[in-house]
Design a protein around this nucleic acid. Structure first.
Lengths: 345, 345
DNA sequence: TTACAACTTGTTACCGGTAACAATCTATTA
DNA sequence: TAATAGATTGTTACCGGTAACAAGTTGTAA
């Protein structure tokens, strides 16, 4: 039965013949309520169809049980990540508020955080990737002036921040190592834009694997793209046209790898016979590339879940009054998905 | 200057020597405040760093200036759509709350809507695609018992609902017509799961185009997939192995089209010379398929924007007390992106 | 001069909960 | 038997705004 107008706690109290506070205790499962009283109140609640107002609770408790996710228009956030974040938040009793930020200037970031504070949001998940100077606002000390826990995703760890990121260095190392293990010796790299932290990490992983195998690390083997398939095609084309010696390529994401495959086809270069290709991300399409792409799996859904769980923990720590750890980093691992494009030599 | 503790409206009032109400008027830009009073209040606001509590306003106004987006784990919602929705909501002064729903039973849906009501959410964007019986809860009359405007995305229009959808019928017609115009006469269709409304609409569009061109409409030319690349490969394989007469195929989404291309490659079937392929969606990858895929563009970002704008309008109509239109539908158009895969005969 | 409208500001009550503390009652212990 | 702890319930104040109405001031028209 849905009543015409919302029933409030006082009406329930009146019907049950108790005070508002007792009803509140029953609603919040406080142990200190006599069994019969509890039953009487619960019956009144059921009879009236009472549902407590989250808004009123927010006001009186000074918190909203809501976490904000801040994204950008960089097109970085996978749907999976949102799904994981939303599911985890719901599991833990939080709602998820979506915000976007166009420009990471100190003023804009401050305006955003203040507006979240106005909403009594409990914490913030910073889901904008670490690109160029878009973390510069951290140097302003804004974060310590604003009493709001923030967890950063895909960010270089820094003092005073909590981050949850994939270990892109290791993922790239694994990818490159796989090419080395398959017998390739001249391994190029199509990187993402080098102002992206994750792109630099992947370059670093590629470099580390080559160095460890005593293979030449030639900067001429790196070509920078912008993550798009078109950029992958162009970069691979340039590489194939100028460096006839390469026999394998580690591409920093699957989308660019798709472009790379197209560039190879267009030039009659056989994959994997003449050129082995490995990607990164394991997007669903990669299983049906021509040929199916060997790649490195990033479980984005898991990333979203862990990030929210970490943030929720951070929220609780703050509420409990304990001092925050000055820095904390959570790193997620990868796994290799071997398909045809990296075929053995 | 950020004060230690939040400043409230009474402190501002005291400093400016006016009543709370006058401060409230200034904050809300009410016209009935004398210029000097306004200035004095604004100065006090600036001096104290006062920011009104959104929570308190929510409680007293009975609304939250927040819209909820309800998604599912069907993996249907593109990032673009969220971006469009979030941007539009922010532009219009609303926040966006993300919720997921695992199961569309009447009980679950009721629980969800009631919990949104507890939060004083202003409206709901139903972003779960119309699949199987997952709109059956509408028949329970739940929607009319719950005073909350709901806008449905990608849904079959029904009485008592407001929908914002692409005109999938027309998009599919355009796609098929393009194959016909290119001189193809035996055009197959790889459809999405037929319990999806959008999949059925696309089948209908395909059928209509063939009928209009007086081409045979053979149910044996339809193979059903599950939107995934792997399903596309399998379905296309089955088709190629059994129907040597087809010379073109309209695939219901780009992902399956990718699988279809792989199936063709694997069988030595040349695209587009022996088989023309057209997809649907224009995912970014499709430009670098092998060959680049002709497809139909759906502007998901726009979809999100229009949906939120429609919902916001619906919210305002409710608040103004006017009766709601019993049904309203907004349809979004498509455009054709011609690339190599559909090459002229 | 009076009356009335328009503008400006204040008063009071209320939105619907929770925190903090007080009060009452019962059972156990000294 | 009195003191005290523990369980239960109520009282009061408060979270921070806004709605509705009242009241005072000023200017203009009758």
């Amino acid at each position: 039965m849905l009543p015409e107008k919302r029933v409030n706690i006082s009406q329930v109290a009146a019907l049950a013949g108790v005070s508002k506070q007792t009803v509140s205790r029953v609603v919040n499962a406080s142990p200190n309520v006599a069994k019969e009283t509890r039953e009487r109140v619960m019956q009144a609640i059921a009879q009236l169809g009472f549902r407590p107002s989250a808004t009123a609770r927010n006001l009186s408790q000074g918190r909203s049980y809501t976490l904000a996710v801040v994204g950008s228009n960089l097109g970085f956030l996978a749907t999976d990540l949102y799904q994981g974040a939303a599911a985890q938040a719901e599991d833990m009793g939080y709602g998820l508020l979506l915000r976007t930020l166009a420009d990471s200037s100190v003023e804009q970031v401050e305006a955003l955080l203040l507006s979240l504070l106005d909403l009594q949001v409990d914490g913030v998940l910073w889901a904008i990737p670490d690109v160029g100077g878009n973390r510069a606002w951290l140097d302003s000390g804004l974060l310590s002036r604003i009493p709001l826990p923030v967890v950063f995703m895909s960010s270089e760890p820094r003092d005073g921040t909590v981050t949850v990121s994939f270990d892109n260095f290791d993922g790239a190392r694994i990818a490159t190592q796989h090419l080395i293990d398959s017998g390739h010796t001249c391994i190029a790299h199509l990187s993402g834009p080098l102002d992206w932290w994750v792109a630099r990490e992947r370059v670093r992983g590629w470099r580390a694997a080559l160095t460890a195998a005593a293979l030449p690390v030639d900067d001429g083997l790196i070509v920078e793209g912008d993550w798009s398939p078109a950029a992958g095609e162009q970069a691979m084309g340039r590489l194939l046209d100028t460096r006839r010696d390469i026999d394998a390529v580690f591409v920093a994401n699957d989308r660019m790898a798709l472009g790379a495959l197209l560039a190879a086809h267009r030039r009659g270069v056989q994959v994997p016979q003449q050129l082995a290709v490995i990607g990164f991300d394991n997007i669903i399409e990669s299983a049906c590339f021509h040929p199916p792409l060997t790649t490195v799996l990033q479980d984005k859904r898991h990333h979203g879940e862990i990030a929210i769980a970490t943030l929720a923990r951070e929220v609780e720590v703050r509420l409990s009054g304990k001092p925050l750890a000055p820095r904390s980093t959570e790193e997620l691992g990868h796994s290799l998905i071997v398909r045809e494009s990296s075929g053995q030599v």
